[in-house]
Design a protein around this nucleic acid. Sequence first.
DNA 1: CTAGCTTAGGTAAACGTTTACCTAACGAGT
DNA 2: ACTCGTTAGGTAAACGTTTACCTAAGCTAG
Lengths: 331, 331
Amino acid sequence: MATTIKDIARQAGVSAATVSKVLNRKDHSIGEKTREKIWSLVKELNYTPNSIARSLITRSSRVIGVIVPDILNAYFTELVRACDQAARERGYSTILCNSDSDPEKEASHLTFLASHGVDGIVLAASDLIPDAHLLERLRIPLVSMDREIPDLDCLAARIDTDYETGAFLSASHLIRAGHRRIAFVSGNPQASNTKIRRAGFERAHREAGLPVDPDLIECGAFNHRFGLVATRTLLDRTSFTAMCCMSDMLAMGATVALRERGLSVPEDCAVIGFDNIYIAPLLVRPLSTIERRISESGYLAIGALIDFLDDPTHPRRMVLMEPTVIQRETT
Amino acid sequence: MATTIKDIARQAGVSAATVSKVLNRKDHSIGEKTREKIWSLVKELNYTPNSIARSLITRSSRVIGVIVPDILNAYFTELVRACDQAARERGYSTILCNSDSDPEKEASHLTFLASHGVDGIVLAASDLIPDAHLLERLRIPLVSMDREIPDLDCLAARIDTDYETGAFLSASHLIRAGHRRIAFVSGNPQASNTKIRRAGFERAHREAGLPVDPDLIECGAFNHRFGLVATRTLLDRTSFTAMCCMSDMLAMGATVALRERGLSVPEDCAVIGFDNIYIAPLLVRPLSTIERRISESGYLAIGALIDFLDDPTHPRRMVLMEPTVIQRETT
DNA sequence: CTAGCTTAGGTAAACGTTTACCTAACGAGT
DNA sequence: ACTCGTTAGGTAAACGTTTACCTAAGCTAG
């Protein structure tokens, strides 16, 4: 139905190979007028090369798969958007997969992406430890973001955030403001993701000569729903004057729970988030948070991946993003 | 490198055609033991068919393209997520494109999707009128969501929202609460999208015997940045006690501007949004809004598209979603 | 005994590209 | 007159599938 390279070739009176060479700018040995004729036919017939056929023969699709736990989490929305933009700027496009933090879904997305011939994959934060055997078998260049990952030879880069420092800053910020009983809410307690943050939180207390009350800790997931229920649980169990939430979504859920109980933020209880999602400053009471430059890390991930695709001997990158405090009105 | 159908065939001692038949369940004429041998080899060698080769020959990729103006707008995040989920449930996957409301980007995404052989496209709300010639030429089954679109024969369905009623409800809600001077903030003033909403807004006033002051109208874009600047402009120009924002993102921007001037919501100025994005109830002061069942409309879009793909004579769907009011704490 | 059906599977073309290698003509240098 | 290079372009295989059509054997019915 659509125009193919053969249509162009026939109408130009040359072979398909010649057209292909011109289209791919490998036309040092093609005459000027043939070249022009081909280009004008391409315009006239609105010819666009069939990427599928091209991928089949070149074994490269110029597509990058991006796997995130849940795009509804505004943090991942921003990340995905940045990855997509970075990829397009370099002639790639992306295909997005939500794993819902489910190992089976993650594995099925991985094989899906492989069967669709993606050139590389960005595997973003998740409580999961990815299936090393599968990754090993697939042998697709990979960038890991904020997650535990085995040291595969198809690992192009790791982009991690210094969660220890982030959590340390977050707790210190509140301790300096005079808080003594600070709740800590984070994701899956088994994930290194959360363990490291907890370590930073505890270090801040240690350095300030403060104890850490285990009753003030609630870990489960990074979404707003957990923020809501964790805060309710904490309020029922104990008392505190501030909350360290390890994601902005958690902080949003927490604030709703505090309001429910008639507590106002930050007067009755201060709340600090983590991520600085673009919504944070738009809340009616703008949320204090830990900035982690989400878009920049997306750009880094895609950049590292494409550099690796261009040249697999390119030195692997290991980036550790340094978070900073942003004080708004909730603390 | 990866296992192909020929590897399976060789090891099973049959031809590739036989393997293909078994894999595709067209194996009525294949012996029981051959069948079993093939399946066990498939498992053993971790064979996954190469989707690219398959697409090339079958001319179907089981991929659906989704074009939105900007995934950072939480409304589209939810929509995209719903489309993706609906598609996966029916064995399709999606590929996402952000047009940034730019006609050139939209056109380039359209040809990109075409060259990658997507089976269908969901074209979501945008201030743009799509390039009818391009669409006509591409001949890819299409679902249009909340946008003006020519009546192409590849149009599988239209999913629209009854914006006139939505805006009417929104304004009436505020009028009933006693407001007399209500600002109206919406997207691109040229787009039918906005004109229709404005009509609903005006009808609510007419039916209540109230005049509409043109000074209270500001139209430009649907994002939070415009909400912020439009509200500043309105506050500088005139006075009002309530705002009809035609998207929740606008409402979020508006609330920030009101706070800036020391006005509290809803005491000094009520604000109502539109869309009921999932963040609306999480704002420290939960946002009143117009519900439009975003996920449901995503499901509808993908469902209509796939039905059309399955059977192009399937009756075209024209859905008009009916919005409702959700009162929270900003009104 | 043979026409015809069923069962089990093979053959080869096709999808739309890319690319390694070939050819043919022409001119220049020796 | 011959090699050699260059220029301009063609040939055909290859990528990994699917599928229309073929074959060959075995069986059954008349």
